[in-house]
Write a protein that binds this DNA or RNA. Structure first.
Lengths: 339, 339
DNA sequence: ACGGCATTTCAAAGCGCTTTGGATGGCCGC
DNA sequence: GCGGCCATCCAAAGCGCTTTGAAATGCCGT
């Protein structure tokens, strides 16, 4: 059943039927009712390909997914997808994932914009002065950044969590407990979130006249193994830190293993605070020593990103508003006063 | 630059240009060269929306993503996506994720098929007599199942790993080491993969005249917490098992924690074998006691699914061939002879 | 020289929608 | 009674491609 058939059935023109269905004012209420009734009765659904060709709108949102033989997609991504689904599910909003060579995402960005494959896109895990953000801005496609990018000469819409505040507060708490040697095991420090976190730690230490020594800061991709390695290196040296702040539960897993290998008991010999993105499959309260965390649900952020993207597509939102979400500090058994 | 402009520029008809570009035989080689040259020079790229309307082919593959407030997407999914990207990256093949209410995926399946939004789709984590498989089959859209579904009255194309064989071999090894009380901590046993795994364990035990007692089998969603709970229950009872086989590294994490809480040392008091889907962020060799595993990369499967889907779209593959991949058994320190 | 047959090219008709630029008719005031 | 103005509705022209059916061209044998 297509528009032509439906309009013939109703003895109306395609124009009128189209307008009635799309809520244009120049059609009488009675006609509109007749049309919508008939459409529903016959299960008419406009063909998206045709609509798309006519309007140039795709009705989908896009994500350029960096891939490569040595590129692993971060497990945080599924949390984001869950959140995106939370919103999109009820709105017939689909997401198109365009895999791109991580070395050259630009080509893919240009392709999907030129092809009008999506109406808006979201950009995740931004770097400072992120090229993708600059590109999306320049290409004029609606987008939202999940995270932030510093050093761009224009404003852009984003949602981010208060990484600096979270790590500041976590560190301050440790300092208040008497820790003087605090280390940071961070994620990839070319990404903005990691830069903010480091900043938060430094600031909290500085407030008490302490510094984050270069040897006490590690930056790696967030895996169990990297957490373990970093922790070993930190804890085996002289003047080992008495407290560690880390960027991911996955790393925390490795840190706990390292502490155990070194016969350090937590929290007696080592205090640990981790950031928690809220996974359903690994929870900080279920570590052998329940973990103190800074917590913020990526899933919730995903839902919000989808919502704002939808709003931008339909013209309900514009401008470059940035949202910064506060982060919970959840205290559990993994920290204590320094011996 | 569209087809019309290009054809005018070349003083050819749109027909000829279109055919030249799409490799039809009824155009002379010289003309074809002229056309492809000009197309490249002017950066002509056919408008996918128009092509789609004309041909009905979308050039994308689809996945209906079950979501819901209480539905969490499995972290295994990112591994699959990485693999899919491995193939799709070089082929300009995009994936559209259509979030659906987990209670009612059918509506979404029907929508994307009716709308011709995708040319083919893949179905993951199938149940027995899976409705989605039946539906896709009935709707006549090309698809591939990642995993298997039993009890369907037709054949369908799939790729799966030899879950039964893997768990059989793992269990047989434990039995050979003298274990008589072997337990299984499985994933959701309404899913086919879990049924096969249980079957494998039972068969191996039966071969030595042993049985898998009902109290020694647990089936839960694969999280650390569920692994812990299941292990506690198993290990605290009378006649506790001396060996456990489990379906996921995430559960293994919980099992190890439970053993530690109960002061059971591994492998002395407890042997453990886990299935490993190959995550980059959590590796069995980096458990405090390196884990013996049955290993099969989901990522590799993802790439293969994408490849076969592409082949089906372009007509290079048809029929209902099922691929069953063998699984590696990797022996590490977490198993030993029974005391 | 001419019909027959490939080979190569083309004009035009879709695909199913949106949107422009009128038409039509009823109702108003004068 | 008539011009003007809404309120409705419509025919037709896109959107940019593919594909059908036919025309033009060149070459063959006879």
């Amino acid at each position: 059943m297509n528009l032509k058939q439906l309009s013939q059935m109703l003895e109306l023109s395609q124009t009128t039927v189209s307008r009635a269905l799309n809520g244009y004012p120049e059609v009488s209420e009675e006609t509109r009712r007749r049309v919508t009734d008939a459409a529903k009765r016959h299960g008419y659904r406009p063909n998206p390909s045709a609509r798309r060709l006519a309007t140039g709108k795709a009705g989908m949102i896009g994500y350029v997914m960096p891939t490569g033989a040595s590129v692993d997609i971060d497990p945080h991504f599924v949390e984001f997808l869950s959140g995106l689904g939370d919103y999109a599910r009820g709105h017939e909003l689909d997401l198109v994932l365009s895999p791109a060579d991580a070395q050259d995402e630009e080509t893919t960005y240009r392709r999907i914009v030129a092809n009008k494959q999506v109406d808006a896109l979201y950009i995740s895990a931004p770097y400072n002065a992120d090229k993708r953000v600059a590109l999306a801005h320049q290409l004029g496609i609606p987008f939202i950044v999940h995270g932030r990018s510093e050093g761009l000469d224009f404003d852009y819409p984003f949602i981010d969590i208060d990484n600096e505040g979270a790590f500041h507060d976590a560190t301050r708490l440790l300092v208040q407990l008497g820790h003087k040697r605090v280390a940071l095991i961070n994620g990839d420090d070319t990404q903005t979130f990691a830069i903010f976190r480091e900043r938060g730690v430094r600031r909290a230490l500085a407030e008490s006249g302490l510094v984050l020594e270069p040897k006490n800061i590690r930056s790696e991709i967030m895996t169990e193994e990297n957490g373990y390695r970093a922790a070993r290196r930190l804890l085996e040296g002289p003047d080992a830190p008495t407290a560690i702040v880390c960027s991911s539960l996955l790393m925390a897993l490795g840190i706990v293993r390292a502490a155990r290998d070194l016969n350090l008991s937590m929290p007696r010999d080592l205090s640990l605070v981790s950031h928690d993105d809220v996974f359903h499959w690994l929870k900080p309260e279920h570590f052998s020593v329940p973990l103190t965390t800074t917590r913020s649900s990526i899933r919730a952020a995903g839902a919000r990103v989808a919502e704002r993207l939808a709003a931008r597509i339909s013209g309900l939102e514009d401008g470059a508003r940035g949202e910064i979400w506060p982060v919970d500090l959840v205290v559990r058994g993994s920290i204590s006063g320094v011996r």
